[in-house]
Structure formats: structure tokens, C-alpha cells
Design a protein around this nucleic acid. Structure first.
Length: 991
RNA sequence: GCCCGGGUGGCGGAAUUGGUAGACGCGCUGGAUUCAAAAUCCAGUGUCUUCGGACGUGCGGGUUCGAUUCCCGCCCCGGGUACCA
């Protein structure tokens, strides 16, 4: 029988599905192991070969863990709320629910495109997912519990005394008993009230106060508003001042929004990182994002005013270096403190600053701007008057939105002072600050009263002490992490379990969850600018409707993904989000595989929610993902054909049109555009092209032409990679595709062998670049086992690498060779019983050791190499021994499960059991040899190999080596200075 | 600018604790088989070479008997972040 992968793979997939071979048991005496993949958003474009990379690795690892005797939880689901389905709905009117279902289950979209379906695409890869546990974040059964968790957050506040989340009902009880005097909570509330005052508050006032404590709260906050998307965005959804999705501009807007008080967890999110087995790079990204800085908050009184400006500084030791203050233009005090003399200038500056987009401000780092307000602050220690300025280098959203400027110790303050000719006080002993600030946190403080003569570190401590004892402020830790905006003005997301009565938000009762997403007539904002859900009629909300109105927002994408790993443990539980018993058994994720791009979004929010649910006693752990591996991106390899229509880039920025290029006032004459395509190795050189142009422009082109013209080349056109094999273009097939009909009737300059060779470039895989490779095509051509092994063979999992199918034959051949190990030329099955040879045992055990070690360190690519070496050796040995082959099949089964199941049955074993066989045990005895081949080096350079018995002593080895004729030659009669002998390894002779 | 990764043949990559640099695969070259092609098999394949050997892991130094691996300085590429007070 030939290796008929199509038939074999189809049969086994059916077998696994029918027998639920990979179902995880919730009750087991076996130790548990939880392997999780980041679940995908099911887009209409389907999977390309980059997506399954991580899934293949996690699948291999799951199978390995099962072989090691673990009860493995390895689920898959869909992060199925999201923008693309909604955009599609806006364009086509099709309900996102339907689009989403089609994208998952396959079918035809309403434009007639065939959709393969994520599930089908995943299935053909032979993954050992426990599909009975599938979750979809957009299903009401799932988001019921997302809403429930939101309610817990709403009903909790962060108690800083206990350092955990506590029920708001406890807080209310405390307010009723003692007011807020003894409450130490993470809050935006600044006032104080007594118990009787609290009791006198109206319901509305009470709720307004509580909102400032709740972990999920409504607040008017400056949000990132994206007009093009019609929604607010979280900080992590913005890249370079534009929306991550669609690259639209984002502006600051004050809006009433749901937020999450993630700041309360800043310190725990930071320290928790130390317990995690994640890459340093991801941990660093999170550390930077949290952005802890230690210093002091100091109050500066404003002269002739009762206002006090609070600043945060990390350098309280430099307080005597303060020569001015700067407020953010948006700072609330600006209008009040500005003197009449400077009113109009300040107004102008504020207007200019507000017009500048976030992006402009970033681009404008070099441009120093600011405006004096006319007001002065009183230095708390020296009592001197310092000018108060506003400047857009101070951000309203960080710290207190105001800084004490110390130009001698901060470069930005220094630049500002220089620019506006403000005094620069030097408070560093023996440091020259004429050319720039002294920003290092070292040196001795001078010219600073009680701080003079102290080293920076000591001065900092003393300064904070004095600031506190004299009542100017206190030591403080500041975090860059902002509270996370949790509302989105979109349709396709979780509705909030919230209704309003007299503008007071109330939660929907647990018994009435989920609040299901109502149908609407259009997926667009209302004419009044309300979110799409405002379109839903009371009937559309059905029984969910309560109060005056429902909340019109939906939750952001990260709501559902923050806890999905918990739901897999207990996906059908109707009474709890996960049962205590099950979460107690499965605990947190042991291995999480996914992209590094979620470092500041999903990975931070999941940690936040996990810690929160832990605080409430629902989870026995407070970190969701113990170990994480970030797979690299698979890049596309785009192919190009080259048409002889010259592309010219000039250093002259004004010349956009190549035909407008002029030389010595007369237009540059270019060779006529042709319809001729040059094969890659036949492309005329730049010199040849210039020569051609010279002929057309006699006397105009000189040596300076090369300086003037940056680049001159044929015009490249992309061609879909499906028409290309080993860079050879199938002209006939490509030109019959309407997208590439420009090839029809074109002339071609071929290679000498008559083929047309394409050029290529490595870039991101995308539809528009015609370089997308789907797994489906490759599975059809080579089989899933080949694709699985090839994706692993490509290189280390964590590294980005270009996709190139050229090597896939090599892996396919390996599997055929493995198949032939037990089949003769006629395809008949052949194995021999009896004792294996010593050689075969050595090969097998060497492979067991290496493959096992490779799996333990997630080195899947070297694992594939080791299988290849094993098969090469066994083939050479003509080994057909059953015992050896069986062990080999078990070893290989995690990588190539279909073929191994088949071979396992052919070998006479029970169907479907290869995956539960114990991982073969390594026996080092089989590797021990009587002799060792010593590499013998002279001065560190290997000269010859010498096989010697392992029993020899150092002295005997040295004697044998020196007596060897090649050694004699290298010694050339001289005595060696030294001989290093590492028994069982190497010999190095120093001469 | 700062913080993380990374730089090894024509290509993807290997070398796990400082011990034979280039495993394995692709590609390429030659040969066998074939009417021919595909497939398969065999041999070769870092560079230079006076065929003795010399050089060789981004560059320059250092430690060591021995460095892709450790240390110092620099260059380049990828990712993150950026008036963060």
C-alpha cells in the first residue's frame, strides 16, 4: 500500500470525532495539564498558514503531555464579537450573527463568496481539541457570564487596607456607620463626609459618590474618540495616534463612559509578573505600560490665590532647582490663575494646543512652545516666587497635569528654560550644565539649604521627609497605567446588564441575565449620535427592558477574552460561570501560546480580571497564564513580474510624475513603455537603462545623472503565488485569471531554459499582496501531517519567518520514507519480530532522548530534524524490527498523528490508542559505547579523529594521542607545552 | 533617545553546561534508472588554495589550552515605547 495520506487522514479525523478521542475528563486521578491557544476572531478571509503555527505547536505539546500521563485540557473557541462582522453588516445589511456563524461553520456569504469556515479549516489539520468545550463569546450562553462578571465589578471597590477587591455593600455599611473618614480605597473621590451626611444624601447623590469607588464605573472622562469608527478606543487600541484598526485619526473627547478601575491593581499586576514564565520582552512591555515611578507629590501655593498646584516629581531632591512651573494647557486652574494681562495670549495658546492632534504633538518634539500665565507660585521651601507657565509638553493625563520645572536636572525643562530665557539654577556640585541638563540620578546636591552636600539618594529621602513633616505634600508612587475605558459605541458586542431610572444606573437582576443583544433596523449611530443600540425598540429588548431606558453601549473586545480560559473548564454550566470544583481541578493555564501583539491589551486585562475574581474567592489562583510562548509571525513571500515601463525615483521631491522630469529645462525623454515582461535574471541593469535614456537625450545626461536619479528600474507587478512554483511563473494559468489579464498578449523575455522566473520579496501576508497561502490547499496537496511537520520545521516557534513552500517536499518525502520503513517496494507491509539490533536500539534511544528534550524546551524544529535522522539511520540499517518501529511510531504520533494512528493499527494494535501510549522511556545503556572518537586539536584547531576505549585514563589517552602519526607530524619533533584531555570529549594539544 | 530580541553557507536553520562550526531540509552540480519526463537512488556542495594548508559565526578588542557561546566597545536588522515630570 502506498502512503495514501488523503484516505488515511480523512478516516482518522472521522474516527477521532466519532469516538471523542480527545475529550478531557473533569474528574481524574491523573495530574492535569492545561494547554491553551489564543482563540481566533473568525473573519471571512479564513485562516492562512500563519494562524495554525501556534495551534500546531500546542497540539503537539498536548499530545506529548497525554503520552506523559497527564489529563490534558486542550480546547478551542472563537472570539466572535468584533468590528469586521459589524462593518460587513453596515455594508450589506446582513446580521453579524449570521456572518459570524458562516465564518465559523462555512457556507456562502451574501455576495456569493464561498467561505471555508474556521471549524473546517481547523478540523483538517488534525488538532486534538476537545470540541465539546467550544465557546463563542457572542453566544448569549457565554456573554451571560461576561455580564455577570461586569456586575461583580460594579458591585466591588478596591480596599487598600486589605489590598483586595471587596463588596460595595460593605462600603455602604461603613459609610452608614462612620462616613468615609476611615476608608482607604482606590477612588477618585476627594471629599469627606460623615455618616449622617451620607444618610442625608439623595439616592442620586449616593450613587454618584459610589461610582467613584466601584471597579466598574461611569465617569465623564477624556476618551480617545475615533470619528471614523464612531466609537471610543482604549489606549492599547491606538498605535501612533491612530486607531489600530483602520488607521483612522483619534481625538480627545469628554464623554460619559463605563471604565474599569484597573489602576487599583497596578502594583499587583507589576509584582505578579515575577511569578510568571513569560518572555522578558512581554514582561518589559507590561512593566513599561504600568509605568511605576516613585517620588513625591508636592503642593505649590499660588501667589495671591487660595489655589494650590499639586505636582508629582520623581526628583524631590532637586526641589531647590525649581525656577518655574508648567501646567498642561488643559489644566483646570489655568483660567483662574491667568492674570488679565496674559488672558488673550493664554487663550490663543490653549486654542493652538487643542487643535494639535496627538500625532502632531509627537512629531513636534523639537518645537518648544509655551505661554506665561502672569501668575506666580510660592516655592514651599525657599518662599521665592516662580513663574507659572503653560506648555503642551506637560500632559494633562499624566500625574497631576503639572510639573515643577527643574531645568538643571531635566532636559525638557532645560530646553524650555533656554528657549524662554528663564533662570537655570544649578544645584549639582561640580557639574557643568551650560550644554544640557544633568539627568543622571547621581552626584552631590549643592545650593539647596538642608539638602546641600548630600548624595542624590540620601537627599531624596530627606526631601520627602521634610516635605511630609512640613505639610507640603507626601511621598507618592505614580503609575502611567490609566483606567480602562469599557464602553464601545458599537452594535456587535455584549450589551451592558444596566438600565437607567432618573439617570441613575441600575443592574439587571441575575435571574434576568443574559441581556440579549436586541435587533436593530440599522447598524449605525442614530441621528442624535447615540450608539446603534439606541435604535432598539422596547419590544426588541423584550423582557430585558427595564427602567427608563437600557444602556446603549456595548462592551469592548477584551471583555469576552478576559475570562474565556475559565469557561472551557465548564462550558455548559447554567448556574455558574465555572464551578468551584472544576476550577479547583484545572486551575490556571499551564501553557499559553499566542502572539505577542496582545501584550498590553488582552494579556493585561485577563490578569486584572483573574486577580479580581480571585479576590472575590471564585478562583484559587490569581494569574491566568503560567507559562506563555509567543509564536513569531509567518510572513508572506510575494512574487513579482517586471514590465519594461520605467519607474524612476528622483531626489527631487516635487517631481511626482516621471514624465515631468526635466533636464536642463527640456523634458526628459524616456523609452517608450512596452508590454514586455523580463524574467528575473534577464532584467536589464541600471547601467543599461541609463545608456538607453542617454541615447534618447543626447547631450543632456552627464555624470550627475546618477546623483539626480535615485532609482531607475522596470515596474514590478505582483502575481498571485498560486501561479508560481519554485519561482517559475505559469503564464497560461496566470493570464487567464482576470486579475492578471495584463499578462495576456504580453511579450516575455525568458530565461535561457525558456522559463519565466519571478522575483520575490518578504512582506506581511495579506489578500491584497496575493501572497496568502491557505492551509487547505497544502493539506489537499501534501496532507495535514506534512503541513504540521513543515510548519514546525521552518524554524524556532518564537521567530518570525518567511513562508516558502520550497522545502515542503523535503518533509513530505520524510513521511513517505517513514512509511516505506515498514512497506517494501510493492507496498506490502513488512515488519519482523524478534530482538532488535544494537544499532537500531541506539538510533531509537538517541531519538527518544533528543525528541523528548526538544519537546521539553519547545524546540519543535529540531524535533523534526531528529525524526529525519532517525528514519535515515533505520533505513540505512534496513531495520524492520517491530519493537523498534512501534516505539518510533509512538514518538512521532504527536507530530504526524494521522499516519501514526494508521501505522499503529497496521502493526496490530487497537485503533485510536497510539495517543494514549506512554512516551517511550529513554534507556541510556543503549548509547554507551566501548570507544569514543576523540577529536584531537592542536592549539584549538581540530586535526584528526582518534577512536580510543572509554576506559583509558587521562595519561593513557595523552600517550595514545601523542604516539599517533598525524600528531607526530604536527608536533614536528617538538615536545607539547601542554595537553588538555577531557575524557569522553576532546583532546587539545598546545604547542 | 530608552528597553527587549536578533545577526552563522545560495536559502530555512543546527550546535542544550565554553569542547569536532554548518546537523537536518531546501536549492544547486554530477551520476544511475528511463525512449523521455516525473518519482526514486548514489556522490558532491562554507570560501580561498601553490592541494601542504589558510581563512571562516555582523565589526574591533579581551579572557581561555580552546569562544557562535563569556566580557568590553561599535555597526546593522526586527519588536516595544516615547515630551511620563
Amino acid at each position: 500500500m502506498e502512503y495514501n495520506f488523503r484516505e488515511i487522514e480523512a478516516n482518522w479525523r472521522e474516527f477521532w470525532a466519532k469516538n471523542k478521542t480527545f475529550a478531557a475528563k473533569d474528574h481524574s486521578d491523573l495530574p492535569k495539564y492545561y494547554v491553551l491557544d489564543m482563540f481566533p476572531y473568525p473573519s471571512g478571509a479564513g485562516l492562512h498558514v500563519g494562524h495554525p503555527l501556534g495551534y500546531i505547536a500546542s497540539d503537539i505539546f498536548s499530545r506529548y503531555k497525554r503520552a506523559q500521563g497527564y489529563n490534558v485540557l486542550h480546547p478551542m473557541g472563537y472570539d466572535s464579537f468584533g468590528l469586521p462582522a459589524e462593518q460587513y453588516a453596515i455594508q450589506t445589511g446582513q446580521h453579524p450573527r449570521i456572518t459570524t456563524k458562516t465564518n465559523i461553520e462555512g457556507g456562502v456569504d451574501n455576495q456569493g463568496n464561498k467561505i471555508a469556515g474556521y471549524r473546517n479549516q481547523l478540523d483538517i489539520m488534525g488538532f486534538s481539541f476537545d470540541w465539546d468545550r467550544e465557546v463563542r463569546t457572542s453566544s448569549p450562553e457565554y456573554y451571560k457570564w461576561t455580564q455577570w462578571i461586569f456586575k461583580q465589578l460594579f458591585n466591588s471597590y478596591y480596599d487598600e487596607t486589605q489590598d483586595k477587591a471587596v463588596a460595595v455593600s460593605d462600603l455602604i455599611a461603613e459609610f452608614e456607620a462612620n462616613g468615609n473618614a476611615n476608608v482607604k480605597a482606590t477612588t477618585d473621590y476627594e471629599g469627606s463626609f460623615s455618616a449622617s451626611e451620607w444618610k442625608a444624601y439623595s439616592e442620586k447623590e449616593k450613587e454618584a459618590c459610589l461610582q467613584e469607588y466601584r471597579l466598574a464605573f461611569l465617569a465623564d472622562s477624556w476618551v480617545n474618540w475615533c470619528p471614523a469608527l464612531g466609537t471610543v478606543l482604549a489606549n492599547d487600541e491606538i498605535v501612533n495616534g491612530k486607531s489600530e484598526r483602520g488607521n483612522h485619526p483619534v481625538e480627545q473627547k469628554l464623554m460619559r463612559q463605563w471604565s474599569m478601575r484597573i489602576k487599583a491593581y497596578a502594583e499587583r499586576l507589576l509584582t505578579g509578573l515575577e511569578t510568571l514564565d513569560w518572555t522578558d520582552s512581554i514582561k518589559d512591555i507590561q512593566r513599561n505600560w504600568i509605568g511605576k515611578s516613585i517620588g513625591a507629590s508636592v503642593q505649590f501655593a499660588v501667589d495671591d490665590s487660595d489655589k494650590k498646584i499639586e505636582v508629582f516629581t520623581t526628583r524631590p531632591d532637586t526641589i531647590y532647582g525649581v525656577s518655574f512651573m508648567v501646567l498642561a494647557p488643559e489644566h483646570p486652574y489655568v483660567d483662574e490663575i491667568t492674570t488679565s494681562e496674559f488672558k488673550s495670549e493664554v487663550e490663543n495658546y490653549k486654542a493652538t494646543a487643542s487643535l494639535k492632534s496627538e500625532r502632531d504633538r509627537q512629531a513636534d518634539v523639537k518645537n518648544i512652545s509655551g505661554q506665561f500665565t502672569g501668575a506666580y507660585a510660592i516655592h514651599p521651601f525657599s518662599g521665592e516666587k516662580v513663574q507659572i507657565w503653560i506648555g503642551d509638553y506637560v500632559l494633562a493625563s499624566y500625574g497631576t497635569g503639572a510639573v515643577m520645572a527643574v531645568p538643571c536636572g531635566d532636559q525638557r525643562d532645560w530646553d524650555f528654560a533656554k528657549h524662554f530665557e528663564i533662570e537655570i539654577i544649578n544645584i549639582f556640585e561640580g557639574v557643568d550644565i551650560s550644554e544640557g541638563a544633568h539627568t543622571e540620578k547621581e552626584g552631590t546636591i549643592a545650593n539647596s539649604d538642608f539638602l546641600s552636600g548630600l548624595k542624590v539618594k540620601k537627599a531624596m529621602k530627606l526631601a520627602i521627609y521634610e516635605i511630609e513633616t512640613r505639610g507640603f505634600g507626601k511621598g507618592k508612587t505614580n503609575y502611567r497605567l490609566r483606567d480602562a475605558v469599557f464602553s464601545r459605541q458599537r452594535y456587535w458586542g455584549e450589551p451592558f446588564p444596566v438600565y437607567y431610572k432618573n439617570d441613575i444606573p441600575y443592574l439587571v437582576d441575575d435571574a434576568n441575565l443574559p441581556v440579549t443583544l436586541p435587533d436593530v433596523d440599522k447598524y449605525l449611530p442614530t441621528e442624535e449620535g447615540e450608539p446603534p443600540l439606541a435604535r432598539a425598540t422596547q419590544e426588541a429588548w423584550g423582557d430585558d427592558f427595564a427602567g427608563d431606558r437600557m444602556d446603549f453601549n456595548t462592551m469592548p473586545g477584551w471583555a469576552g477574552s478576559s475570562w474565556y480560559f475559565l469557561r472551557y473548564m465548564d462550558p455548559h454550566n447554567e448556574n455558574e460561570f465555572v464551578s468551584k470544583e472544576k476550577v479547583e481541578y484545572w486551575k490556571n493555564v499551564d501553557l499559553y501560546i499566542g502572539g505577542a501583539e496582545h501584550a498590553t491589551g488582552h494579556l493585561l486585562y485577563s490578569r486584572f480580571w483573574t486577580k479580581f475574581l480571585h479576590d472575590l474567592g471564585h478562583l484559587p489562583f490569581d494569574e491566568p497564564f503560567q507559562k506563555m510562548i509567543n509564536q513569531g509571525m509567518i510572513l508572506g513571500r510575494s512574487s513579482f513580474v517586471y514590465k519594461k515601463t520605467l519607474s524612476i525615483k528622483t531626489s527631487d521631491k516635487n517631481t511626482k510624475n516621471r514624465k515631468a522630469i526635466t533636464l536642463k529645462d527640456s523634458p526628459l525623454i524616456l523609452p517608450k513603455d512596452t508590454n514586455t515582461f523580463y524574467s528575473f535574471n534577464k532584467i536589464p541593469s541600471k547601467e543599461a537603462l541609463i545608456e538607453e535614456i542617454e541615447k534618447l537625450n543626447p547631450g543632456h545626461i552627464s555624470g550627475s545623472f546618477n546623483d539626480y536619479i535615485d532609482e531607475i528600474c522596470l515596474t514590478p507587478f505582483r502575481v498571485a503565488i498560486k501561479y508560481i512554483e519554485n519561482d517559475v511563473l505559469d503564464i497560461e494559468a496566470a493570464s487567464s485569471d482576470p486579475i492578471f489579464d495584463f499578462l495576456q498578449g504580453a511579450e516575455f523575455i525568458f530565461e535561457d531554459d525558456g522559463t519565466y522566473i519571478c522575483g520575490h520579496e518578504v512582506e506581511k501576508m495579506s489578500k491584497s499582496k496575493y501572497n496568502v497561502q491557505t492551509p487547505d490547499e497544502l493539506v489537499e496537496k501534501f496532507g495535514a501531517d506534512t503541513l504540521r511537520m513543515y510548519e514546525m520545521f521552518l524554524g524556532p516557534l518564537e521567530q518570525s519567518k518567511p513562508w516558502d513552500t520550497q522545502g515542503i517536499n523535503g518533509v513530505h518525502n520524510f513521511l513517505r520514507k517513514a512509511w516505506r520503513l515498514v512497506h517494501n517496494r510493492d507496498g506490502d507491509f513488512i515488519v519482523t519480530e524478534g530482538e532488535p539490533t544494537k544499532e537500531a536500539l541506539k538510533t531509537l534511544h538517541k531519538t527518544i532522548k533528543k525528541v523528548g528534550d526538544d519537546l521539553d524546551r519547545f524546540s519543535f524544529n529540531t524535533g523534526v530534524s531528529n525524526f529525519m535522522i532517525c528514519v535515515n539511520e533505520l533505513t540505512e540499517q534496513k531495520c524492520t524490527n517491530k519493537a523498534i518501529i512501534e516505539q518510533f511510531v509512538v514518538l512521532l504520533s504527536s507530530y504526524a498523528p494521522h499516519m501514526c494512528e494508521e501505522l499503529w493499527v497496521i502493526l496490530g494494535n487497537e485503533a485510536g490508542t497510539v495517543g494514549t501510549q506512554p512516551f517511550p522511556t529513554f534507556n541510556p545503556d543503549h548509547l554507551i559505547e566501548a570507544n569514543h572518537k576523540y577529536p584531537v586539536s592542536f592549539n584549538g584547531k581540530m586535526r584528526f579523529m582518534l577512536e580510543l576505549p572509554r576506559t583509558l585514563s587521562k595519561e593513557e589517552i595523552e600517550k595514545e594521542v601523542l604516539a599517533h602519526e598525524i600528531a607526530q607530524k604536527w608536533l614536528d619533533g617538538k615536545a607539547p607545552k601542554k595537553v588538555i584531555v577531557v575524557p569522553g570529549r576532546i583532546v587539545n594539544v598546545v604547542i
